[in-house]
Simulated assay, not measured.
Amino acid sequence: MPLSSPPYPTREMFEEEALAALASIPEFLRERLANVVLKVEEFATPEQLQSVNIATRWGLSGLYEGRPLSKESVWESGDLPPVISLFRQPLLREWIDTGVGLKELIRHVVIHEAGHHFGFSDDDMHQLERMAED
């Protein structure tokens, strides 16, 4: 059952925290995120789940969709802008189940998905999180 009644944080609060997470990324990287769209949805669509081989809508808290910077080419154009999606309901459930702070959880997912935009490895993404903390 979706978690939608008070006192659960609203979609607007998620958006504010996600934007704050993006703002914490070092400027030399943040500038390269200017064309990335940030969205907050309740759940991933069936197509989004299928794209990452996840069977349940509760199993995906964030997703990067787009061409990483490392794969961009001047010979290709017409793509839609890259999108970072946060999925509110799975994040709320993870927040409740783990006891991790919601702000920290949102920040972790945003930075992880932003890392995909740069084509970063998991180790690179952990370093990006540490840089954003400073």
Rank of each mutant, 00 (worst) to 15 (best):
E113N: 10
E31S: 08
I84M: 14
L92Q: 07
F28Y: 07
A34F: 06
E41L: 13
T10A: 01
K39F: 07
H112C: 09
G78H: 10
Q127Y: 07
L80Q: 12
P6E: 00
R130Q: 09
E15H: 01
I25Y: 07
L19T: 02
S51W: 12
H126S: 06
N35C: 04
E113P: 11
E16K: 01
M125N: 07
G59I: 05
D97P: 08
V74R: 11
S77L: 14
A21K: 02
V40S: 03
E41Q: 13
M131N: 02
E72V: 14
V36D: 11
R93P: 10
L49I: 14
W75S: 15
R67S: 06
R93C: 12
S121C: 05
E76W: 11
Q50H: 08
A20C: 01
F120R: 03
E31G: 06
R32A: 07
R11G: 00
T10C: 00
L92W: 09
R67W: 05
Q127E: 08
G99Y: 11
V52N: 07
E94Y: 13
P82Y: 11
S61G: 15
L33W: 01
G59L: 04
G101Q: 12
R93A: 14
E16S: 01
S77R: 15
L19F: 03
L60F: 08
M125E: 11
E65R: 15
L102W: 10
L69K: 11
P90W: 13
M125S: 08
P6H: 01
S61T: 13
G99P: 11
E16M: 00
Q48P: 06
K39A: 09
E133N: 14
A132M: 08
K71E: 14
F120H: 04
R107V: 11
E12L: 00
